[in-house]
Design a binder for these strands. Structure first.
Length: 541
RNA sequence: GCGCUCGUAGCUCAGCAGGAUAGAGCAACGGCCUUCUAAGCCGUGGGUCGCAGGUUCGAGUCCUGCCGAGCGUGCCA
């Protein structure tokens, strides 16, 4: 690297550098290789001392203060509460959770947040869907809008409403459907306008039910689904500090305020009755609507308000984890923040590509509108939490993920989750075996006897263990959990090789102690790594 | 059309703030259980890093063009 500035061939330069270096403790020898690489060979003692360090650090080994306590917010999943989470959301959940945990491990003060889109048209459509199903349960006969939510969960919510409140929300079908613009028919979409139809249906529902009853139906749908999402994520090992309500934003005038701030900055103009934000002045492809001509503010307006609020809360960094299908949305959000004079550099939007499920080597077809999709809950029940968490973050997040259900379920060496967990369980098994044989184990966290670790497998393990903290650091800073999954697999692999090559419970007590300490260190690092990944580390399998 | 992402072994993927003979798992083939769980290990074969240029002492990694795949491109969220 220096060769250019020094104006000398790399090898010559390397030789000069090496000659100028003083002796360093812990370094055995320094040699020049290839086109000018300087290799520092660590002394065996330096590696061996690591085992003692890992054992005394325990669960904290691998952590650092790199983040210096800076406040970081990680917002992830944030799926609309219009239905249960599906497998696509699952990847964002697993990815976000690990990124947050990694950042925490390297010393950031992390705040995990779920943005709840509890306002807006999609939620109204849900409310209407619930109400229509309820009316059907009441015995009314009426068509279901092509744009409505058709999942079974809608029936469930409607059933609750019917069970607990009887006919309290009932209206005659004729009143509901009178004079509505035609819905689009599935066979021929040109027969009507499904958007106009559903909008009219929403307005009709609100008119017939009145504000209070409409709100009750709406909230029942919202809360039922939100509870389900909360419960689902908790069981997936994904927990939040804050569930941030979009509705609360509007209620306290934050949306209006954000629009006013943009107006004050001169980046807003009116055209055909709508308020437009001049985002193209800030690198976006085109300008965006903040307030529609019907007076309703857009989702984008809420999002500007939400991001203003994030910045006002004083985070040093704000991380959004979005589905890759939203990537076109990034420029306009950044544009708004820029127009408002915020430091856009604080915001990172990380994208997660969809996961494609495979069963029997065939793609599992999914379609949201028909309500036919595999839910996260179904996936968890099918393959288990550990496999789901591990598989989701096994690949780079911006890479499409082929999720092989059969592999995730298989209890074989093909399955990387079991492979790593098995290594952990094997260490525990050795300890149990020792206890059975009456071998006393003194897991002192010092370096006694560690000089006996000289086998190739032992040296390899020591080197790999040594890399753990930098892997955690790199995975955290680059938001790349897959680095960790690769690492734990490699560590497990080296342990299995060691296991097959050498006995640990040997008669030579000093050697035995040294080996036990080493495998205890391996177990500790596996445990720490798996913990960061949200995967359990079982003692038996 | 434009924008973003991606193209590495038969398959799934690492490697990408440029650096040593390009790695892993699966699949294929051949071995290893009287010994701490064989959910394991050891070995063999397998690659013009999409194509073409460029920058550089050096390119899978950076730049440009092309080809191919996905996504986005609403007064939807």
């Amino acid at each position: 690297m220096l060769a250019k500035t020094a104006g000398q061939p790399p090898r010559t330069l390397a030789a000069q550098l090496v000659a100028a270096l003083p002796a360093i403790a812990g370094i055995d020898k320094i040699e020049i290789a290839g086109p000018g690489f300087i290799n520092f060979r660590l002394s065996a003692a330096a590696h061996q001392a690591l085992v003692a360090k890992i054992l005394s650090a325990g669960a904290t080994f691998g952590q650092s203060r790199l983040g210096a306590g800076k406040k970081v917010q990680v917002e992830f999943v944030s799926a609309n509460p219009t239905g249960p989470l599906h497998v696509g959301h699952g990847r964002g959940a697993a990815y976000g959770a690990v990124v947050a945990d990694l950042l925490e491990a390297v010393g950031y003060a992390v705040q995990r947040e779920y943005y709840v889109n509890d306002a807006g048209r999609q939620m109204d459509i849900l409310a209407v869907s619930v109400w229509l199903r309820y009316l059907e349960l009441c015995g009314e006969v009426l068509p279901f809008p092509s744009n409505g939510y058709r999942g079974d969960y809608v029936w469930d919510i409607a059933a609750t409403l019917h069970r607990e409140h009887g006919d309290h929300y009932r209206c005659a079908a004729a009143e509901v459907i009178a004079d509505l613009p035609a819905d689009a028919q599935p066979e021929d979409p040109t027969t009507g306008d499904k958007e106009a139809h559903i909008d009219a249906l929403i307005a009709r529902s609100q008119a017939l039910l009145g504000e209070e009853r409409y709100r009750q139906v709406f909230d029942l749908g919202l809360n039922t689904i939100l509870d389900d999402i909360r419960d689902d994520l908790a069981q997936f090992g994904v927990n939040y500090h804050t569930w941030y309500s979009e509705r609360s934003l509007a209620q306290r005038g934050a949306v209006t305020q954000a629009i006013e701030r943009l107006q004050a900055s001169g980046a807003v103009y009116e055209q055909q009755g709508a308020q437009w934000f001049r985002s193209s002045d800030f690198g976006d492809e085109k300008d965006r609507v903040l307030v529609r001509d019907n007076g309703q503010s857009t989702y984008f307006a809420s999002d500007v308000a939400y991001h203003c609020d994030k910045f006002a809360r004083g985070f040093d960094r704000v991380i959004n984890i979005w589905g890759a299908d939203h990537h076109g949305y990034i420029p306009r959000v950044k544009a708004a923040l820029q127009a408002l004079g915020e430091d856009v550099g604080k915001l990172d939007v990380l994208l997660v590509q969809f996961a494609i499920l495979y069963r029997n080597a065939e793609k599992v077809q999914m379609s949201t509108r028909s309500g036919e999709f595999v839910t996260l809950r179904q996936l968890r029940h099918e393959v288990g939490r550990d496999a789901a968490r591990f598989f989701y973050v096994m690949r780079r997040s911006e890479q499409h993920l082929d999720f092989d259900l059969d592999l995730a379920k298989s209890q074989s060496n093909d399955n990387p989750v079991y492979y790593v967990q098995y290594a952990h369980a094997r260490v525990s098994s050795v300890l149990r075996q020792a206890a059975e044989r009456g071998i006393e184990i003194t897991p002192s966290a010092d370096s006694t006897h560690l000089e006996r670790l000289t086998q190739p497998q032992e040296v390899a393990l020591l080197k790999t263990l040594d890399r753990y903290p930098e892997i955690v650091e790199s995975a955290a800073l680059n938001a790349e959990p897959h680095q960790l999954t690769h690492y734990v697999r490699e560590l497990a692999n080296e342990f299995h090789s060691y296991y097959n090559a050498h006995q640990f419970l040997v008669d030579d007590q000093a050697l035995r102690d040294a080996r036990i300490k080493l495998i205890l260190a391996v177990r500790q690092v596996l445990r720490n790594g798996l913990a960061l990944l949200g995967v359990s580390a079982p003692d038996t399998m």
